[in-house]
Amino acid sequence: MIGDVLTSSILFEVLRQQYINAQLDFLINEHTYSVVENNPFIDNFILFNKKEESSKIALFNLAKLIKTHQYDVVIDVYSKFSSNLISALSGAKTKISKYKWYTSFIYTNTLKEGKTPKTIAGLAIENRLQLLEPILEKQPPIIQPKIYLTEQEIEDSKQFLLSHKINLSAPLFMISVLGSGKNKTYPLDYMAKIIDAIVKETQVQILFNYIPNQEPEAKDVYNLCKPETQKHIYFNVFGKNLRSFLAITKHCDALIGNEGGAVNMAKALNISTFTIFSPWILKEAWNMFEDGKMHVSIHLKDVNPNIYFNKPLKNMKKEADKLYKMFLPELIIPKLKAFLKNK
C-alpha cells in the first residue's frame, strides 16, 4: 500500500498545474501517511484506519462524512470494496476509476488499464495518469513520485549515522533484505549470497532495511553472510519508523533488494536502485523509470523465460516458493556487478 499511495501522489502535482485554486484532498491508509507528509500539492489528508477496515458501520460513517465535503470529482485509484462504497456515496458529479465490469456502474468514467508500458515510467505511473484524462484539457506529463523531507530530518539522520561510525564520505548501501510478505521475499540464504557478492565487489558499508518485528529474519540473513561480509554490515543502524528510514536512505548511494515500498521510496528520494522482483509480480508495472544505469531490476522471467510460457503471472503466486528456489543468486550477480560498476 505504501508504494500505491506514493505512486498515486503524482496525480496531485499534475492537477495542481491545471487547477491552481482547487482543493485537493487525499484519502489514504493511516500507516502510509509518512511517504506523502509535507507534499506541497495536497491540501488535506483523510486517514483510513483499522476501524474502517474492520467495521462496515465505521466505513459507512466515513463515507457519509466524505459526502459532506461536497467534492466535485472523486478519483478512485485502488477500486476495492471500501473505495467503491465511498465513491458511490460521495455525491460527486464526476467519479473516475479503472474499469471493472462489476463496479463500472458506480462511476461516470472508467478507463481500462494498459498492459504494455509506453514510456520508461512503467504501467503503475501510466495507468494512474490516464485516470486524469476525463478532467484535463491536455495530456498529463510523466511525473516521478517525490518524497519531501525537511532539512531537520536530513540533518538528524546524518548525525545519527555519524554517531554510529558511518563514514558518509565512503559508499553506503541500503539492503532491502525482506519483502512485504514471504511470497515477495527473496530466499534468505540467497540474499546473503547477494550481499556477499556486493561486499566482495565494492567493500561498501551496508545497512539493512527492517522494522523491529522483522529483526529475527534480518538477523538470519546477517548470520548467513560470510564473516568478512559481516564486518561491513552495521546491523543495529536502522530507522525506528518510516520517516527515519526515509531520512537515512537519503544518505545512501544505492538501495538493493526486494521489490516493494522501499524501492519505490528510494526512487522518490532520487537514490539509485537494484531491484529483485518476486517471480509472480508483473515487472512492467513496477520497474518505474528503469534506465539500465541508475535504476536496474531483474525478474526470473528475464533469465528463464521458458518457465512463463503461456502462464499468466497472477496464476503463479501459489508457486512463489518453488519459483524463488529457481532464481539462483548466480543468475542475478552478473547483472548486479554491472550495476555496481556505476556506483
Rank of each mutant, 00 (worst) to 15 (best):
G292K: 08
M288T: 09
Y99H: 13
F327R: 07
F277Q: 00
L89P: 13
L313I: 14
M265I: 14
F12A: 08
Y308K: 00
M316Q: 09
Y210F: 13
N315W: 03
K317W: 07
N213K: 12
H31D: 14
I256R: 05
K165Q: 15
I298H: 06
Q130S: 08
S9Y: 03
S34K: 06
E228S: 15
L111M: 04
F105C: 07
K165W: 08
L168Q: 09
A218W: 09
Y102T: 03
S157N: 07
I276A: 02
D72T: 02
I57R: 07
P117W: 03
S104H: 14
T119S: 10
I333T: 12
N287S: 10
D4V: 07
N304R: 13
L132Q: 06
K93N: 11
P216F: 07
N342I: 01
S180L: 00
L131R: 00
P134R: 03
I333H: 10
I198V: 15
K165P: 10
F238C: 00
R243T: 10
A320V: 00
L255Y: 04
T202Y: 14
W280H: 12
Y234W: 07
Y222D: 04
I96Q: 02
L161R: 02
D291K: 00
S163R: 10
Q152W: 05
N61W: 09
V35D: 13
N21G: 00
N38G: 10
L282K: 05
T119P: 13
K219P: 06
Q23C: 01
S34I: 03
P312N: 04
H232K: 12
E259W: 11
G181R: 09
L85Q: 04
N342D: 10
A88K: 15
E217Q: 15
Q144K: 11
K95C: 09
Y99Q: 08
N49S: 12
T150M: 09
T275D: 08
K98M: 10
H232T: 03
V204N: 15
E290L: 01
K67Y: 15
A170M: 13
F81S: 07
I57L: 14
F105S: 12
E52Q: 15
E201M: 10
E113L: 01
P305Q: 09
N270K: 08
V237N: 01
V296D: 13
L162T: 08
F81E: 05
Q70D: 02
F105M: 11
P140K: 00
K314D: 11
K118N: 12
S8W: 10
F274H: 03
L172G: 02
I42C: 10
V204Q: 13
I125A: 07
I143V: 14
K51A: 14
E137S: 03
D196A: 11
A63C: 04
Q23H: 01
I307L: 11
N306K: 13
S54W: 09
Q159V: 06
W280I: 01
Q152I: 06
K343F: 11
A58Y: 11
F173V: 12
L149G: 01
A192F: 11
Q139I: 01
